[in-house]
């Protein structure tokens, strides 16, 4: 833990490289970010930039802090007592920790899909339009249109169009997760954060969701946390490898997988550490 700054250096360089090479304004830009639960520091000096309409995968062994970082991006960690952080996270060059910023508008801009699907105890339809309803948009035609569009994008429409008013709990695990994605899409966010969205699903459901994620890339910037390195390599444009709270390496996915610059990255993707 004392070697934080030393090991952070190379990752910073790699991040800088990426940014320079693409030459575009990053949507998410994380700078010198430290994070602690109580007195327990879990993230050390993270610097990372996510370009627009790309899929970035966070990989790393359990407890490496990748989920914490993800949840920091829409400030879901605020709900936990006793947290502290320093550094900055900027979305479209606007700090999310700005005291004048309303966290509600941030979360509307940054949607989130959780590891365990969490449909509300409502109908499928009401689940999808929840975001609109809480925003005070209750016009039936608008809701109908958004529900259909979102479900189609989440590749769920054909499976549920005849039972939109039945309970969301009647769906299978994969369908529920796609419903949660549809729910996030309905809110028209710019960024979608996905926290191991397929970890509880079987391979068929997983592949469906992966297909869907690839389609979503056209419209959204996606950050996905995954344990599944094949998944990361299949769908992501860039991959960030975290280890013990540090960003070890961040590069274009094929580069990271074929020519890892760091020994620890190589050890992890070849299964020697985990």
């Amino acid at each position: 833990m004392q070697t934080v700054n030393n090991v952070a250096e190379p990752s910073m360089t790699s991040e800088g490289d990426v940014s320079n090479r693409t030459g575009q304004q990053p949507v998410i830009s994380i700078r010198d970010f430290d994070f602690s639960y109580g007195g327990n520091q879990v993230l050390f000096n993270i610097n990372l930039q996510v370009p627009e309409k790309e899929i970035v995968a966070f990989i790393g062994p359990s407890g490496c802090g990748k989920s914490t970082l993800l949840r920091s991006i829409n400030r879901m960690n605020d709900l936990i007592a006793g947290i502290s952080y320093c550094g900055d996270v900027r979305i479209n060059d606007q700090s999310i920790f700005d005291p004048t910023l309303d966290v509600i508008s941030l979360r509307k801009k940054v949607g989130m899909v959780f590891q365990k699907s969490n449909p509300f105890p409502k109908s499928i339809y009401e689940n999808v339009v929840f975001g609109l309803r809480i925003a005070g948009r209750n016009k039936r035609e608008e809701l109908d249109a958004v529900a259909e569009e979102s479900l189609k994008r989440a590749a769920l429409w054909d499976e549920v169009k005849d039972r939109l008013d039945s309970s969301a709990f009647g769906l299978s695990g994969g369908q529920m997760q796609r419903l949660c994605i549809a729910r996030a899409i309905a809110n028209e966010p710019e960024i979608i954060l996905m926290d191991e969205p397929c970890s509880a699903l079987d391979p068929v459901a997983t592949s469906k969701i992966e297909e869907m994620i690839l389609q979503l890339k056209e419209n959204y910037t996606i950050v996905i946390v995954t344990h599944n390195m094949q998944q990361a390599s299949r769908i992501s444009d860039r991959t960030a490898f975290f280890y013990l709270g540090e960003l070890i390496e961040y590069n274009e996915t094929h580069a990271l997988y074929s020519r890892p610059r760091e020994k620890r990255t190589e050890d992890y993707i070849t299964g020697r550490i985990g």
Partner: peptide
Amino acid sequence: SGALALGAS
């Protein structure tokens, strides 16, 4: 959390 993540107060 799901609701809060959707921007609910």
